[in-house]
């Protein structure tokens, strides 16, 4: 698989330089933009595979850029935020971002996110029409409504199954609490979010009891959950 084209939208020159140098060193091809408007137009002309987007831009808010891009493309967007507040990450995810990185981040972390997104892209291209989902030792047979872990059938409650399918369909993407409760319960009261935490905890226990080093579902405290593409 050829290395994807990455668009970097970041106004701070030294952080942009850091990202660009990292990409160069790892043989990614890239384009860089220093403002939101420029980023949006670059995205339109070059049609990149992945967008790395800083939320605090001088001209328009990062969330605005996401909304513009989402108007015509499903390009994965990884948001970079220096704000420690969860609410702007949630706003970006709800607007259509796929993942987020909080400053200060390490070079390895950046590369890991890129690799995960690439895997997800590859999966989306190959298996989009498949009725079976496979990820590591996990296998979901949508048609039969069965879940297998390392070849053995897992017994899940109907809500656990619904949650697992939702995560699987959006593998690699961080799903916010609101998004999940809205999809599974149809509402998003505080009480539903507490319930969600309990169901996720039991689901994770069932998935990870066999092998504690392998983590299928990541918890993002205050934000949501993500199924990791193994």
């Amino acid at each position: 698989m050829s290395k994807p084209l990455i668009l970097v939208v970041e106004d701070d020159p030294s952080v942009r330089n850091l990202i660009v140098t990292t990409l160069k060193a790892n043989e990614y091809s890239f384009i860089a933009a220093g403002s939101g408007e420029e980023g949006a137009s670059q995205a339109a002309t070059h049609n990149p595979d992945i967008i790395l987007l800083d939320l605090g831009l001088p001209d328009i808010d990062g969330v605005e850029v996401i909304k513009q891009v989402r108007g015509w493309a499903i390009t994965p967007i990884i948001v970079i935020s220096a704000r420690s507040d969860d609410s702007d990450k949630i706003a970006a995810l709800d607007a259509g971002a796929d993942d987020y990185l909080t400053k200060p981040f390490s070079v390895e972390e950046l590369l890991a996110r890129l690799r995960a997104t690439q895997r997800r892209l590859a999966y989306m291209n190959s298996a989009s029409s498949s009725s079976v989902f496979e990820n590591g030792g996990l296998k979901i047979d949508y048609a039969a409504g069965c879940v297998y872990l390392d070849g053995e059938e897992l017994h899940l409650t109907s809500i656990e199954y619904k949650l697992l399918c939702l995560l699987a369909q959006n593998v690699g993407k961080v799903l916010t609490h609101k998004f999940i409760t809205g999809n599974v319960w149809g509402t998003s009261w505080d009480n539903d979010i507490a319930s969600l935490r309990v169901f996720m905890a039991t689901l994770r226990k069932k998935l990870e009891s066999a092998d504690s080093e392998r983590q299928y579902i990541q918890t993002h405290i205050g934000v949501g959950y993500r199924m990791v593409r193994l």
Partner: peptide, 12 residues
């Protein structure tokens, strides 16, 4: 304040 599972917090 939010109602969180202590496991999630310690895990993180």
């Amino acid at each position: 304040l939010a109602d969180e599972l202590i496991d999630d917090i310690v895990d993180t």
